[in-house]
């Protein structure tokens, strides 16, 4: 494995990308989960698929080198995030309605562009379920830049984002620019999703943002610890998932998600056992 890792550039690209998305996915995911926006990640990933299909179509028809599926996917994802925000303010009483609208819109676009590009091919299969060999050096650099952006913004606006997530009304009363910060946040989410798609795939990208957090929330004390555990769980899932995916020639999306589900079950079970024993000692 190590030998191959040093021989093949694509394995290095994949591994480094995996480590980066294992960091920013669960990191941003913690905010996504506590703000009850988990489904937005799903909607955005389907819009990203629409963008990817558009990119594949353009590549095939016109061979425009700068319009790679990675960038068109990212573009669609960011535009989709803006639409979700617009729709949420249009349907104030039915804010969750924005999600099925955007999600089905994304799938609709995907179907159209996929058929225009003459149907399914292996590339698309990789986008759906992830791949260990799909990350180019250029993609890796883009993902490095996305990671730096995400970390910088989250670090700068941590306390405002936390306040907004915990109690939006209080934040607004206190003069926090809720709308602008929320907008920034949703754009970041779109960026993280488009960065993660090559490895975990469209259908499972939201899992990387939510499952480690779901496990972490069971056992962490406080918000910072929740973030820390989420990132640790995310990284473990990515590393184990990539290695097993590579060995068994399975798309890594499947193995990464199954690893995080396994961690989730372990924490739920572990917490029960822990409670059982601590309660016993209290009675003594």
């Amino acid at each position: 494995m190590l030998n191959q890792f040093f021989t093949y550039e694509f394995l290095q690209n994949t591994f480094y990308t995996g480590l980066l998305i294992g960091l920013i996915g669960p990191l941003l995911g913690t905010f996504v989960v506590v703000r009850r926006l988990s489904l937005i990640a799903d909607a955005l990933s389907h819009v990203t698929l629409g963008g990817i299909a558009f990119g594949l179509f353009m590549e095939k028809k016109y061979g425009l080198f700068f319009l790679t599926p990675f960038y068109t996917g990212m573009g669609f994802s960011v535009i989709g995030s803006v639409f979700i925000e617009r729709l949420r303010s249009v349907y104030k009483a039915y804010q969750e309605l924005a999600i099925p609208i955007i999600l089905s819109g994304g799938v609709g676009l995907s179907v159209i562009f996929i058929s225009l590009a003459n149907g399914f091919n292996t590339d698309l299969y990789n986008y759906l379920f992830g791949s260990v060999s799909a990350v180019s050096r250029n993609d890796l650099w883009s993902i490095v830049i996305i990671t730096i952006i995400v970390l910088t913004v989250l670090f700068s606006f941590y306390k405002e984002l936390f306040m907004l997530s915990f109690d939006e009304e209080h934040a607004v009363v206190s003069g926090i620019h809720a709308k602008r910060i929320h907008f920034l946040f949703i754009v970041l989410t779109a960026l993280v999703i488009s960065a993660s798609i090559r490895i975990v795939g469209v259908l499972l990208v939201s899992a990387l943002m939510t499952l480690p957090v779901a496990a972490s929330i069971r056992i962490a004390r406080g918000f910072k610890q929740t973030i820390l555990f989420s990132v640790i769980f995310g990284e473990i899932s990515v590393i184990i998932g990539l290695i097993t995916g590579y060995y068994f020639e399975i798309p890594p999306g499947g193995t990464i998600v199954m690893t995080s589900i396994f961690i989730l079950i372990l924490t739920i079970f572990g917490k029960k056992v822990w409670n059982y024993f601590t309660r016993r000692t209290v009675i003594k």
Binding site: F162, M163, S216, R221, G222
Partner: peptide, 13 residues
């Protein structure tokens, strides 16, 4: 998942 300390801190944000 927020501690008392974290919640009260938001009053200073």
């Amino acid at each position: 998942p927020a501690t008392v300390k974290e919640v009260v801190s938001t009053g200073l944000t």
